Each structure stands twice: as structure tokens, then as C-alpha cells.
Amino acid sequence: SSGGSSILDRAVIEHNLLSASKLYNNITFEELGALLEIPAAKAEKIASQMITEGRMNGFIDQIDGIVHFETR
């Protein structure tokens, strides 16, 4: 797709992000992006959206560029 990722790509990214949230206590956007094979800024945006929508527990430290995952 030309304008970003398809629905399937997005679903795969979100699935992998949720998997990462179970493996890590926290991770930088750079590391997360590398893990998900997407730019760091996109990793931040998707993580932020999932947390806001209540689909993933955690919070974002924008100063240090880190996602902190919280286990249920």
C-alpha cells in the first residue's frame, strides 16, 4: 500500500507490540521500532494509541523516549 501500512500489517504490528509488552518491562522507541521493523516514531504512535484505547497497559515517557509496560 502506498499511504502507510495495510490493515494486516497494522494487525501484525499490534500483535508483536503486545508480545513485546509481555517480554519487556520497558523499551526505547528505537529498540521497539527495530523489533517491529518500523520507524521509531511510528512505534511510538501505535504504542500510544493502543495504551490510550486501553488495549495495552503502560505509559510513555516522551522525555526519555521509552515505553513502560505495566503487567495486568
Rank of each mutant, 00 (worst) to 15 (best):
S1D: 13
S1E: 13
S1G: 13
S1A: 12
S1N: 13
S2V: 12
S2R: 06
S2K: 08
S2Q: 12
G3T: 13
G3I: 11
G4K: 10
S5Q: 13
S5C: 11
S5M: 08
S6L: 09
S6H: 13
I7Y: 14
I7L: 11
L8D: 11
L8W: 09
D9V: 06
R10D: 14
A11S: 09
A11N: 09
A11Q: 12
A11C: 11
V12F: 09
E14L: 05
H15P: 04
H15D: 09
N16M: 15
N16P: 02
N16W: 14
L17A: 02
L17W: 02
L17D: 01
L17E: 01
L17V: 06
L18M: 08
L18T: 05
S19L: 15
S19V: 15
S19K: 15
A20G: 03
A20C: 08
A20I: 15
S21W: 04
K22I: 07
K22R: 12
K22N: 06
L23S: 07
L23K: 11
L23D: 05
L23Y: 09
L23I: 13
Y24I: 05
Y24K: 04
N25F: 09
N25Y: 10
N26V: 12
N26M: 15
N26A: 14
N26Y: 15
I27A: 04
T28I: 02
T28W: 02
F29N: 01
F29S: 02
E30W: 09
E30G: 07
E31M: 10
E31S: 07
E31A: 13
E31T: 06
E31G: 06
L32C: 02
L32A: 01
L32H: 00
G33T: 02
A34I: 12
A34T: 09
A34M: 11
A34P: 02
L35A: 04
L35G: 00
L36S: 02
L36K: 00
E37I: 05
I38N: 00
I38Y: 02
I38T: 02
P39W: 04
P39T: 12
P39N: 07
A40L: 05
A41T: 09
A41W: 15
A41K: 10
K42N: 10
A43W: 06
A43P: 00
A43Y: 02
A43R: 01
K45G: 07
K45Q: 15
K45W: 13
I46R: 01
I46D: 01
A47W: 03
A47F: 05
S48W: 13
S48R: 14
Q49P: 00
Q49L: 08
M50Y: 03
I51T: 01
I51K: 01
I51V: 05
T52Q: 14
T52L: 14
E53I: 05
E53Y: 03
E53M: 07
E53P: 00
E53W: 04
G54T: 02
G54R: 06
G54Y: 04
M56L: 15
N57Q: 11
N57H: 12
N57L: 11
N57C: 13
N57E: 10
G58V: 02
G58M: 03
F59W: 15
F59D: 04
F59P: 00
F59L: 06
F59I: 08
I60Y: 02
I60W: 02
I60H: 01
Q62I: 14
Q62W: 15
Q62T: 14
Q62L: 14
I63H: 09
I63C: 08
D64F: 15
D64H: 15
G65C: 05
G65T: 03
I66Q: 06
V67P: 02
H68K: 05
H68S: 06
H68G: 04
H68M: 06
F69Y: 02
F69E: 01
F69P: 01
T71V: 10
T71Q: 13
T71L: 08
T71D: 10
R72K: 12
R72M: 10
